[in-house]
């Protein structure tokens, strides 16, 4: 495993843990989109079905379980915790995230590495991950509030995407059979969406004003 991949995994892990820790500590999830968090939970649940069938390494298995556990915990906090759920911006978090799921599923049925249940689910999770940030973007646009979504969370997600792209480039040039078009393209789309987000985040930070995304 190369350093880019490892750093990508770590920043991804920290982004989820920072969010979970924050919610746990301050008992508030203001500014966080439950829709996006639910999509991430679905992403992990459908991608890691191979926990039961393939063993790759102890590292992979443990990381998968931690990603699953932490993302499900965030959803649990936001839905069920007495105090946390009160701080949830329900009226603002209106993105119809269910409408993302069906197109991703259809796309996965059409474009996959192999037409098996596991591969279709794997492709579905990649497509869904690429667009899962959208409800969060809409919520930010509505509330125009970046105070509650810490810079750390944004920074870590961006670092995760960047390191994974470096990892793919590195692996492409150092390994013989390493070609994963589906992963790469959906990863690029995801990074572009984040890039859009960063642009406005840093722009507003620089001008010391509240975040304002174009309609």
């Amino acid at each position: 495993m190369n350093m880019f991949r490892f750093l990508g995994d770590m920043t991804h892990l920290f982004s989820v843990l920072v969010l979970l820790l924050k919610i746990h500590t301050i008992k508030s999830c203001a500014g966080i989109s439950l829709k996006t968090q639910e999509l991430y939970a679905i992403v992990f649940a459908t991608r890691y079905l191979d926990l039961f069938t393939d063993y790759i390494s102890l590292y992979n298995t443990v990381m998968k379980l931690v990603y699953l556990g932490s993302s499900l915990s965030i959803v649990w906090y936001m839905r069920r915790h007495k105090l946390v759920r009160r701080s949830y911006d329900k009226d603002q978090d209106t993105f119809r995230h269910h409408f993302l799921i069906l197109p991703c599923l259809i796309l996965a049925l059409l474009i996959n590495e192999k037409f098996t249940f596991m591969e279709v689910m794997w492709a579905f999770s990649l497509y869904l991950e690429a667009v899962a940030i959208l409800p969060q973007l809409v919520l930010l646009q509505r509330t125009r509030n970046i105070d509650n979504l810490t810079g750390q969370y944004v920074f870590l997600l961006g670092a995760y995407r960047s390191f994974y792209i470096l990892n793919w480039i590195y692996r492409y040039f150092t390994e013989v059979h390493y070609v994963h078009w589906i992963t790469w393209i959906s990863g690029l789309v995801q990074t572009l969406l984040y890039g859009d987000f960063f642009y406005y985040y840093f722009h507003s930070w620089k001008n010391n004003e509240k975040l304002q995304l174009p309609a």
């Binding site: 991949r5 191979d50 393939d54 390494s57 992979n60 990381m63 590495e113 992963t183």
Partner: peptide
Amino acid sequence: PNVENMHDEL
């Protein structure tokens, strides 16, 4: 399983 075709990334 065929290692080359396995998804070894997260």
